[in-house]
Design a protein around this nucleic acid. Structure first.
Length: 288
DNA sequence: GTCCCGGGCA
DNA sequence: TGCCCAGGAC
């Protein structure tokens, strides 16, 4: 069982002040931040989040934006489909929820780009509800503190049950506990070099009791190299179009990329994803 | 299970 | 270079 009270105390003393936390944690700000934080480190999100919220303070504001506008504001955060999904979510919030972020799991999960993690994060951090919030940090903390292993294969449903059992009764405290778990995983119980010497819960840690056994590589699937990948080509194309005022021809020469077939494949997949649209005479541009 | 972005760090 | 990062869609 995760020691909720100990980690809440630690969080009160050491938790970071972030633009989507504390007094400014409205459901909409939390939703925007969670989209941006998917697979993206906090420090890279902060400036983009501030610019985004200044430009589109409400769902109605974002719903009225074009694809080109949101993709340019998203800039180089990565996974740019998230920017379009977030705008789509804003449109749905406008049309189906009277401009207010829904406060229940089913409606949140119907928003494109909102999954098990993001939906519960909005409920907990935006609405102060008592729901288990399990991200990569919490999974790792659970694996170590409760099960005594460095990292375990992804079993989100089991992890959610375990986290739920550890949450304090009062909903506001439960939400704070989830925040504390995540922050603890991000700052102390980190993936690569955990700061076990300054850990506030050493006496509750099964991983420490077991002598910090290393993880088994077998459970983890290897990530494909980014260099030379289709993802890199797609990224280059979008970067060119973000910085261009007019529609552009996209080929291997313009892009400085040796593999013409790969460029063609990337263009078509970007089009299929709605990230680019066709301009005049074999050119491409950011979508309206 | 595979793909989607991009920067940072050991 | 490989791995990691407040995941989600297909």
């Amino acid at each position: 069982m995760l020691p909720a009270q100990s980690l809440i105390s630690w969080f009160d003393a050491h938790g970071r002040s972030l633009p989507w936390r504390g007094e400014s944690a409205t459901p909409w700000r939390v939703l925007v931040s969670e989209f941006m934080l998917q697979q993206t480190p906090v420090n890279r999100v902060i400036p983009r989040f501030l610019g985004w919220m200044q430009r589109w303070p409400t769902p109605a504001d974002l719903a009225a934006a074009t694809g080109a506008e949101v993709l340019r504001e998203w800039a180089n955060l990565g996974y740019p489909r998230r920017a379009l999904w977030l705008r789509d979510a804003a449109e749905q919030i406008e049309s189906k929820h009277a401009g207010s972020v829904p406060d229940n799991l089913d409606d949140l999960l119907r928003l494109h780009g909102v999954g098990d993690y993001t939906a519960r994060a909005v409920l907990a951090f935006g609405f102060g509800q008592k729901v288990p919030v399990v991200d990569t940090n919490v999974r790792r903390v659970l694996a170590r503190v409760d099960r005594g292993v460095a990292i375990s294969p992804v079993r989100t449903r089991t992890d959610m049950t375990e986290v739920a059992a550890s949450l304090p009764e009062k909903s506001a405290c439960a939400a704070k506990a989830s925040l504390a778990y995540m922050e603890f995983g991000a700052l102390v119980c980190t993936a690569r070099a955990p700061l076990c010497d300054s850990c506030p819960i050493t006496n509750a840690c099964a991983w420490r009791a077991a002598g910090y056994p290393a993880g088994s590589q077998a459970t983890q699937t290897r990530q494909k190299a980014y260099i030379g990948s289709d993802r890199q080509v797609r990224g280059r194309i979008l970067a060119m179009l973000r910085n261009a005022d007019d529609a552009l021809r996209i080929d291997e020469k313009v892009l400085g990329w040796p593999d013409a077939a790969q460029v063609s494949r990337a263009v078509h997949s970007l089009f299929a994803d709605g990230l680019i649209s066709s301009g005049p005479a074999d050119t491409w541009k950011l979508p309206e």
